[in-house]
Structures are given as structure tokens and as C-alpha cells.
Design a protein around this nucleic acid. Structure first.
Length: 747
DNA sequence: ACCTTTCTAGTTTTT
DNA sequence: CTAGAAAGGT
């Protein structure tokens, strides 16, 4: 052990050797935080503490797996609990389900399930989902749950008309979940937090988990904060690690104040700062620091590294997203020539939809890539159907699941029949499965419908006999006996069938990995999959992911695309200083993933919802010095490529209509755009982009979809908006916000 | 009951 | 643009 300590810095050693009492580790990016946590767990065990008494809470399952492996490498006894907040909650709620007043095999509802349930709830209390959109309601409800606020408390706070209605929906939704034997993601946390108010149970858990570690503490919400506090209430052996500068989940209730106030919560806490960076070149670190310095609400941290200098960070400009995508493949290929492997490269973007043009370009360039999006697979229709069947097997009260599969494949059970069954369930107050098993007692049903429902119930009952088999087996028989297999095999699109095979594989994998496999546990596990869980370091391919999913990872080469106003920072984050700072932290997280090579890129126009819009560079670029600016001086210009459309549509093709041709031209690289024009105000001196300039200049001819042709009279911008005054040919003179105006730049 | 067509509304980030 | 819901026809 001493030998292991010797490899750590003084600060790291302090954190590792601290045993009893609260500990806060403020760890800058790349400062060896994971190393500290794993060493600390090893050290605790080495000191004679039983692994069983140690609980480490990570942010993703992936992180938990990795940590488990790294601790296993110390060759110490195993048995520590390492998991996420959500899976900890799911486990404990299952274990103590009676105390929590839950069925043992509750369902866990994902986004779509939640929407369906809240929709049903809204209708049930005779409100129109049109006026109370499920997604919006869920946002509000989620916020409540994160703050441990009950419907009654919400109603007391929001006394306005709409607030009262939302409170009713919240309450009806909870009732609906209860009736379905289901919990949503937020419920998992909320129920655990509430459970911990029971002193008997809390004492028991305090005794079990005598040492508690919480990673990424800056991203805990109030509920998680209460859980952490409750779990360590008696012994106070709470170790929180994190970095306020990497707090990027404020939008889902994370409270950066939790980490900032740790010292107030635990006045006797030992504080350790890890400021030496072992990951990035001085250039990368310097850029990150320049960016994050602009945030006002933060704890100043001085990051430093003793790594040797690398190459300058780059900023690259492109014509549009397709151009940018090809810029990406070029860059990746040039790095490959410099002896980097593809698996050492990553591309980050702000929103998932930005991956499309990238994928296309990567396929065309035959560069292997993986999209790190774990949840996507489980959102496919056929997979959701299969999971709904499986859920139904262990929880027949699950109305959302039942509704989903009762008529898939079609069994002649339509909406009317389903409606009547549910109505009966609601009015009689009986469990759904009781009604299904005694379908003759539903008076409103036609005989034919009864027969069909009975047939369906027989299928489910038959499947339920085999629940003690391996999960792979259960999934396979379910696929067969429900008729899903014949349905999907008859489809000329083979993907759905292949996907179910993939699901079978995942079940087999689970059977292998788990000590005591059960369908319930398997379902719980896949319900809590996160995007980053899909990252495969061994795959040998370039990784594509959102900036959020990039947290906790590192790559020798990193490209961040779409560094534009409205994207980074995102348009929905512009209205408050706090959310703007969070966007800055998000970019900070992205930048600090890079070990050696870092490039940011942006496009001058980007297709948004079918329309190509002129963009503005991100204002975050303004404060950055020392970026090596690469303009795309039409490296992709190819006049041979100009097909017959070019001449015919020349005046139009400079405009939005360009994008209409795009989806169809797989082989043709999208026709490009002529010579680069000095469309920026100060192109000449932008070697380090010191200002956020736009691609317009006075007197420029433009076209607006509504107002027609016009000329730019003046341009002005503040931090958040860029306004242009345009004199239109119709006589109108308008001031337009570039963010919204769909302007085409004409010659 | 079910299929097709039409329309409308919603578009950040995620456990 | 695209997915999902309402509407209308068979």
C-alpha cells in the first residue's frame, strides 16, 4: 500500500489517507480524481474496513464499472457497493419495498412511458392534454420531485389557476403510477429520500454503509443531496468529490450550491484541492482557463500542468454543416496520418441531431465511428414493445405496458375495448390483472372482444410459468409466443428483427455477468442505461457524443463542432446569467477532455428545421486568445461536381433551397459554394478570433422568406443578440434578430 | 376495428 | 423536417 501511495502527489495522498469524518475533494479536470477515489477505497479496505461497509456513488453505470475494475486490480476483497444514485435507489426500494409501500417488482418508467401515463392522468381528471402538454407537465412534476415537493405543497405555492390545475395533474399522475405499480426516474430518488426519513431504516443503512463516497457532487440535486446526507447522518463519513466548474446539469435540478456549501454543511470537513492536471497540454489547459475565467460564480482554481507543450488549439470555420462534416473527416484522417488511432479521437456536439451530417461524412470517408448513445437502442419501437411484454410478465398492473402490447401484433383488440377495460379498472378500483383474469365480469364488453382478450391473457399466463429460466430464454420465448417474431420476420425491413436479436444478446450477456440473474433485475438495469454507458474504448473507432455525455472521458484528440451562438450557448439558455455560465462550463468540460489535439469548429450557415440559417459565432470564442484560426478556403470546391442544377438554380442554390437537394445525393458531395467571400466584418484580422463577428456586412443583399429582397443597413450586437436593420424592396424597414431571421445572403 | 391520410405541434442537454 | 396524434374512409 505504501508503494501505491508513493505514486500519488501530496494532495492526492491527503485525500486517499483521510479515513473518518467528512471530506471534500475539489478536483479540477484531469487531476486524477478517479485515481484518488479508487485508491481511497483500496486504502480503506487495507485499513481493515470491510468492503461491504463501503458505498461509492458514481454518475453513470459506466463509471461504476470502471471503478469496480480498478479497485479489483488491487487484489483486495470485493463486495463494496458501487453504483449510481438511481440504481442504488432501485435496489434499496426493492429490498425495502414493503416499507416504501411498493410492489416488489415495480416498473420503471422512461420518458415515453411517463408521457403516456401523464396523458392518461390528465384525461382522467377531464383536462385536455392540448392545454396541458404532457412534456411540459412532466418538467414541472420532475422539478417538484427533485425538490421533494408534494402535489399539496405545490398547490399551496402555485395558487394561480394554471398552478392549481398542474397540481391536480401531478397528483393524478402519482395516483396513476401507483395504480400501475410504477416509478419514474425522479420517483426512485424521491422515494429513497423519503424512506431515509424513517430513522429505523436510516440507522440500518448507516450501519451497512459506514463509508460513503459521492462522485460528481456538483451535479447532485436537492433530492440526491438529502440521500447523501441521510446515508451519512450518523457516522458523517461522507466523501464528496467534484468540480464546480464542471456542473452541467442545472437544468435537471442539479444544485451547484451543494458543493459550494459543503463546508457549511460539514464545518469540520477536510478540504483537498487537486489542481495539477495530468491530462492536457498547457495549450489546452490555458484555453480552458481563459474560457472559465469569464464565469463570475465560481471558486477560483489555478490549474497547472507539467506536461510538455503540444500544438496550438485550432478554430476552424466552414460554409455549412456539410462542409464542417467534411472538415471533420479531413482532420481525423490527418491525425491518423500522424499516427493517432481512430479510437483516440472524439467529436462532441451540443445536440444529438447534429450527428447526422457527421455520420454521413464518416461513412463516405469510410472512417469507423461509434455514436455514444446508449438509450437510443431501448427507444426503438420493437425493443420498447418487447420490454413492455417483459414488464407485463412481472407486473400485470402496468397499464402503459399493457396498452402498448395488447394489440401488437394485431389481435382485434382496439381502442374501444382497451378503454372499456381501463374504465372498469378505474371505476371498480380493482387491479388490472384481476380484471383481465375475469374478463367476463366487464359488462360493457362484447363477446367477441372477451374471447380475444382471453387469448391474450392466456399468452401472458403461459409465459409467466417460465420466469425462473435464464433471462435470455425468457426473452426468446416471449418473442416467439407473443407472435412478435412472425410479425417482425414478415417485415421486409430486417432491422427490427435484428434489433430484437440484439436484445436477446444483451440478456445473455446479463445472465453471464450477474450472480443471481432475474428478469426483474435485468429490466431494472436496462431501464437505467445512460448514453455514456455505450462508450466502448476498445472499439477502434472515432467516438461521437454530446458534450454532456463526454463528461468523465478523455481523448488524445477532440473536435467540438457547432461552436455557434444559439448552439453553444444554446438558444434556450440565453435568458439567464446562470444558465449562460452553465453553457460555458459545458464547453469547458468539452475542452478539458482533450489530451493533445483540440479543435473547435463552426459553420457560417446551418440547416435548422429544413431552413438554412446564417449563424453567429459563439460569444464564448471572444475571450479566447491563441487559437490557430483555420479558414476553410474552399478546400472542397469542386466545379466538376457542379451538376446540371448548378446553372439552372444558381441564384437559388446560394440560398436555402440548396438543402432541398441534399438528402437525395448520396454520391455527389453536396455541391459547394463558389469562392469564399469576405463576408465577415473583419476577416482580415481574425487570426485569433477576438470578436464575435457575423457573416454580414452593410449593404449586403439579402432575402427574407416573408419580406423578400432587401439590403442590410446596419448591424449591431450585444452579448446575446445580433440585430440587423434591413431596408426591404417592399419599402418596409425592419430590425431583425439574426438568431431568428431566416436570411439568405445574395451576391 | 383498422388502415390511410392529414395536420399539427414541437424541437437541449439525461437518469 | 419529423414524429405523433386526430380524423376520416373502408
Amino acid at each position: 500500500m505504501d508503494e501505491l501511495l508513493a505514486k500519488l502527489t501530496a494532495a492526492q495522498q491527503q485525500a486517499v489517507t483521510h479515513i473518518d469524518g467528512p471530506l471534500l475533494v475539489l478536483a479540477g479536470p484531469g487531476s486524477g480524481k478517479t485515481r484518488v477515489i479508487t485508491h481511497r477505497v483500496a486504502h480503506l479496505i487495507h485499513q481493515g474496513i470491510r468492503p461491504y461497509n463501503i458505498l461509492a456513488i458514481t454518475f453513470t453505470n459506466k463509471a461504476a464499472d470502471e471503478m469496480r475494475q480498478r479497485i479489483a486490480a488491487f487484489n483486495l476483497p470485493r463486495g463494496s457497493t458501487i453504483c449510481t444514485f438511481h440504481s442504488l435507489a432501485a435496489r434499496l426500494l426493492r429490498e425495502f419495498h414493503e416499507k416504501a409501500d411498493l410492489p416488489a417488482d415495480f416498473s420503471i418508467y422512461d420518458d415515453a412511458d411517463q408521457r403516456s401515463a401523464v396523458r392518461d392522468a390528465t384525461k382522467k381528471i377531464e383536462l385536455d392534454p392540448q392545454n396541458f402538454p404532457p412534456a411540459q407537465m412532466l418538467n414541472q412534476i420532475s422539478a417538484c420531485k427533485n425538490d421533494l415537493e408534494s402535489p399539496e405543497q405545490f398547490a399551496a405555492r402555485r395558487t394561480d389557476f394554471r398552478g392549481q390545475k398542474i397540481a391536480l395533474i401531478y397528483s393524478a399522475y402519482q395516483k396513476q403510477l401507483k395504480q400501475n405499480g410504477a416509478l419514474d426516474f425522479d420517483d426512485l430518488l424521491m422515494k429513497l429520500a423519503l424512506l431515509l426519513r424513517d430513522s429505523e431504516l436510516r440507522d440500518l443503512l448507516n450501519q451497512r454503509f459506514r463509508y460513503v463516497l459521492v462522485d460528481e457532487y456538483q451535479d447532485t440535486n436537492h433530492c440526491q443531496y438529502q440521500i447523501a446526507r441521510g446515508l451519512a447522518l450518523n457516522h458523517r463519513n461522507l466523501c464528496a468529490t467534484g468540480d464546480p466548474d464542471q456542473s452541467i446539469y442545472g437544468w435537471r435540478g442539479a444544485d451547484i450550491g451543494n458543493i459550494l456549501a459543503f463546508e457549511q454543511d460539514y464545518p469540520d470537513a477536510k478540504i483537498v484541492r487537486l489542481e495539477e492536471n495530468f491530462r492536457s497540454t498547457p495549450q489546452v489547459l490555458d484555453l480552458a482557463d481563459q474560457l472559465i475565467r469569464a464565469n463570475k460564480k465560481r471558486k477560483i482554481k489555478k490549474l497547472f500542468t507539467s506536461l510538455p507543450p503540444g500544438s496550438p488549439c485550432e478554430l476552424a470555420e466552414f460554409e455549412d454543416e456539410y462542409d464542417e462534416a467534411r472538415g471533420m473527416t479531413d482532420w481525423l484522417q490527418s491525425l491518423k496520418e500522424q499516427n493517432l488511432e481512430y479510437r483516440q479521437m472524439a467529436v462532441f456536439y451540443r445536440v444529438n441531431s447534429m450527428s447526422r451530417p457527421l455520420e454521413e461524412a464518416l461513412r463516405r470517408a469510410t472512417i469507423p465511428y461509434q455514436i455514444v448513445r446508449g438509450v437510443e437502442f431501448f427507444q426503438r419501437k420493437e425493443i420498447k414493445d418487447m420490454i413492455a411484454y417483459l414488464r407485463l410478465l412481472i407486473n400485470l398492473s402496468d397499464q402503459v405496458a399493457l396498452k402498448r402490447v395488447i394489440n401488437r401484433p394485431t389481435r382485434g383488440i382496439g381502442q374501444t375495448t382497451i378503454g372499456r377495460i381501463f374504465d372498469h379498472a378505474n371505476s371498480s378500483g380493482k387491479d388490472l390483472w384481476q380484471i383481465l383474469n375475469n374478463i367476463d365480469q366487464v359488462p360493457t364488453l362484447a363477446n367477441a372482444a372477451r374471447t380475444r382478450v382471453k387469448k391474450f391473457v392466456a399468452i401472458i399466463a403461459d409465459l409467466q410459468k417460465n420466469l425462473n429460466q435464464p433471462v435470455r430464454q425468457i426473452v426468446q420465448t416471449t418473442y416467439k409466443k407473443t407472435g412478435m417474431e412472425s410479425l417482425l420476420k414478415a417485415d421486409k425491413n430486417e432491422d427490427p428483427h435484428d434489433n430484437v436479436c440484439e436484445l436477446v444478446n444483451s440478456a445473455a450477456q446479463y445472465d453471464n455477468d450477474s450472480e443471481a440473474p432475474s428478469l426483474a433485475e435485468y429490466l431494472q438495469q436496462i431501464a437505467l442505461v445512460s448514453d455514456s454507458d455505450a462508450y466502448d474504448a476498445e472499439s477502434g473507432s472515432v467516438s461521437l457524443m454530446t458534450l454532456h455525455a463526454a463528461k468523465g472521458l478523455e481523448f488524445p484528440a477532440v473536435l467540438i463542432i457547432g461552436v455557434e451562438h444559439g448552439l453553444i450557448p444554446h438558444a434556450r439558455s440565453l435568458d439567464s446569467e446562470d444558465s449562460l455560465e452553465e453553457e460555458r462550463r459545458l464547453l469547458f468540460v468539452g475542452i478539458t477532455r482533450a489530451q493533445q489535439k483540440l479543435r473547435l469548429s463552426f459553420a457560417r450557415r446551418r440547416t435548422n428545421q429544413g431552413a438554412s440559417l446564417t449563424t453567429i459565432r459563439s460569444e464564448f470564442l471572444r475571450t479566447l486568445q491563441g487559437l490557430d484560426f483555420q479558414q476553410s478556403l474552399s478546400p472542397y470546391e469542386d466545379f466538376n461536381d457542379a451538376d446540371e442544377f448548378q446553372d439552372e438554380f444558381q441564384p437559388i442554390r446560394r440560398n436555402n433551397y440548396q438543402s432541398h437537394h441534399r438528402p437525395h445525393q448520396w454520391n455527389n458531395s453536396p455541391k459547394k459554394s463558389k469562392k469564399r467571400r469576405p463576408t465577415s466584418i473583419d476577416d482580415s484580422q481574425t487570426s485569433t478570433s477576438t470578436r464575435s463577428d457575423i457573416n454580414l456586412q452593410p449593404n449586403q443583399l439579402v432575402r427574407h422568406p416573408k419580406f423578400g429582397l432587401g439590403r442590410v443597413k446596419s448591424i449591431s450586437s450585444d452579448r446575446e443578440h445580433c440585430f440587423v436593420v434591413i431596408q426591404f424592396n417592399t419599402g418596409a424597414r425592419k430590425t431583425l434578430d439574426l438568431q431568428y431571421a431566416k436570411l439568405d445572403i445574395l451576391d
